[in-house]
Design a binder for these strands. Structure first.
Lengths: 145, 145
DNA sequence: TTAATTGCAAACCATTTGCATGAAG
DNA sequence: CTTCATGCAAATGGTTTGCAATTAA
């Protein structure tokens, strides 16, 4: 038989640890602002000045594939990243794009539907939207006259 | 006093009816697929062959501003449009990007929160995601070999 | 040593915009 | 007529990608 002995091929490609990747994850873990790729880039650049945008995008992609980070769906123009992985919802200010974590309701959606019309549900995202306090009251936290 | 008499200025700029605009809304009302701008363009072009993509984008923007159409937030690459205006949720297949309407649960979120941390909630979007039936069972609805 | 990772720059692609022409009211 | 809408083409801007040089393991 030709049962060739070949190197064991790990299902997960071995991921290398690099200063760039570590700093990228670090920046996300440290933030609660749901930064954009550009914001992550600016932050990471403080640790690794020579890093390029392309590397940040590639690393964000790896972190997402590895489920170390999530993408928050907010059809603005650019993606927002979140290192918080436990179930929670969001509030988006449609004026200034501030994105806030919101604890999900205790009952409600949790442990509810498993399928819709035969399609298996793997998860869901719930985003509230409106105009945040600061945008709502112009002047209160701004110049007054 | 200088209370100049000037032409009454309607709050809403008068919107003209054009074949292009009508066809664009028509395409959305007729569809339940949550088409992308490109798909709307291709459809509308069947009625108005000379229409340009730019016009479709501008008209989609007007329809959204006029609240005749909604944008479905699905951080894929491109926006999806929906002419269905009553409250409902969605299911997104993360494999083929099929987007399905889902009736929102009778109780649950409706009439619930009005504010989160002081920010007034104006609405919310709930999107379930997973892999749809067709993508889940490869081959069943495809060629069988 | 050898394969993954990086920086750079060019490529992509959805969407937006400036402008001269055309159509609606 | 006056103003808004259109078509075209060029410009934007976030994100992706090809490639040669680096670097982790």
């Amino acid at each position: 038989m030709t049962q060739a002995r070949r190197a064991p091929e790990p299902a997960t490609a071995r991921q290398r640890s690099t200063r760039q990747l570590d700093a990228t994850l670090q920046a996300l873990v440290a933030s609660t602002e749901h930064p954009t790729a550009e914001q992550v880039f600016r932050e990471v650049r403080r640790q690794v000045p020579a890093i390029s945008r392309g590397t940040v995008y590639r690393n964000l992609g790896k972190l997402i594939a590895a489920r170390r980070v999530r993408l928050v769906h907010v059809h603005d123009r650019c993606a927002r990243y979140d290192a918080r992985l436990d179930p929670h919802d969001h509030f988006l200010c449609t004026r200034c794009t501030m994105l806030l974590d919101v604890e999900s309701r205790p009952r409600g959606l949790r442990r509810s539907r498993a399928r819709v019309r035969g399609h298996r549900i793997e998860g869901h995202t719930l985003t509230y939207f409106g105009v945040c306090r600061d945008c709502e009251e112009p002047g209160v936290t701004m110049v007054e006259r």
